[in-house]
Design a binder for these strands. Sequence first.
DNA 1: TATTAATGTGAGTTTTAATCACAGCTATGA
DNA 2: TCATAGCTGTGATTAAAACTCACATTAATA
Lengths: 296, 296
Amino acid sequence: MKRLPPLNALRAFEAAARHKSFTAAASDLFVTHGAVSRQIRQIEEFLGRRLFERLPRGVELTDEGREYAAVVRRAFEQMAEASDAIRTRADEKQILTISTTPRFAVGWLMSRLHLFQRDFPQYGIRISSTTRLVNFERERIDVAIRYGRGNWPGLSVTRLFDHEEVPVCAPALLEGPNALRSPEDLARVRLLHDGSYQYWKSWLEFAGIDNVDPHEGWVMDDPNVMFQAAIQGQGVALSNPRTIETELRDGKLVRPFDIVLATDVAAYAVCPEQNADDPKIRAMIEWLVAQAEAQE
Amino acid sequence: MKRLPPLNALRAFEAAARHKSFTAAASDLFVTHGAVSRQIRQIEEFLGRRLFERLPRGVELTDEGREYAAVVRRAFEQMAEASDAIRTRADEKQILTISTTPRFAVGWLMSRLHLFQRDFPQYGIRISSTTRLVNFERERIDVAIRYGRGNWPGLSVTRLFDHEEVPVCAPALLEGPNALRSPEDLARVRLLHDGSYQYWKSWLEFAGIDNVDPHEGWVMDDPNVMFQAAIQGQGVALSNPRTIETELRDGKLVRPFDIVLATDVAAYAVCPEQNADDPKIRAMIEWLVAQAEAQE
DNA sequence: TATTAATGTGAGTTTTAATCACAGCTATGA
DNA sequence: TCATAGCTGTGATTAAAACTCACATTAATA
């Protein structure tokens, strides 16, 4: 076979030809314009011909460049199409089953999962949300995301992020004559509890507040219900800020004070040790870690 | 455009599919089998499918892999063909003119130049061999290779290798009753001089030989003629072993003793300073340096 | 049973590519 | 007409990717 030009540079050339601009191609490829400029030069040196005319504002393809770009684009399209055909082949599509808590599913996973699907169209996704500990084999779970201390024998354990607790409430509670200003003001509002009084008790101790009764308020067994109550202004809930990211960003919930209780539990991605090398499981766990890191 | 797999890995896949072997593909691509193994895995993880069946002796394409390989190969062929068409386009082909001494041309450059041409088919090559110092502009020289001390003002100078001198002769001179055994035996054979007695004089001084008259022997003004004389067994010549590589390898000439005289001159690639950035000149000089280094 | 001819892989190194920050160019518009 | 905005080019540095090495593993072959 005849010698091929540097392939990554060729892809940069294709993008530049499509945009008629190095800068636009660069942002298309998520690199800087300098990287594209170097790669185009590589191709031009390889071919011994200019492919672009350099103009003061942008670039323009030479005749040769235009012809070449057409061939290159067609070749890339064929490759992309063939790759895509394999990746999205519906028959015998592999299903990746994720088990997690309902809150984590709604508050963290859902808003990100389309990104995984975009990068890995070859896998079907199934989400099984339960607070129970799962039997991987019987329930056909590939990856579970669980809070704990990471000591699960027989399982491959990957830490995602620490679990911290911070009070959150509807923004309306920060306004008016009874507005929450300091932690002591919690005595005047309803506490929302997730299953047990324990969490608020620990937080109040940590914050050094003694005028607030941790047994006051409502207890709900479904955290999603609890957060809906908080959004409606029914009281103040405790939450890991990471799992209510969207609510915080949209302003549905706010953090009245920045006293963050660190805990000794963390979110972990786990799977049976013997499956840790399965490509789809590895892909998912690596992706979860990357997402958790990106969130910081 | 749909997402493309890692392109260099794709090339490795193509080679592996062609050879039906990772090891063979590796040597084809001048890398180790480990590199190919990783790249194939990359592609397989990207696609979410095995492309090869792993057998104990070698690998075999899966049905999917076979289909995919066909598409990929065709796409690469299109790119290679289009690239080649531009690179070898005869009209307006750029000519690269190299000026060097006749000896260097015959003894070093000639045997390597096809490698340059293979990598850079887009340039036509012209060789101008003369011992004169050249006028780059008037004689349209792009790159000159010259011996000296590297102090040529106005020129961009790149050192290639040191010039050393060592005696060489036909292997026949090492046999029979009058065989050359030690440097002192040079008194019994003819010395072959390249233009001046100076070189032998320096070498004999360096070697500490005082029974040999450096003014003995034949003086030839063309080193190629001198080496022909040496090959025919007419005497012993002094030479830089680098420029008679092929004669040494073929056994036409041998080094009777390993006393190497280092000199203060070296071989340099030079070009006018203002042309040092010309792609074809840069390509040639970088290639000359790489060849000189490879020879060591 | 030892050998051979392959692929797979963890750790470390080398090579390659990308970034950053600044330079240079010129059409545009104040 | 002169500063500005919008590009591309590049030297030095940093970051990432690829490769190598050495060893492991496997099963056909001698």
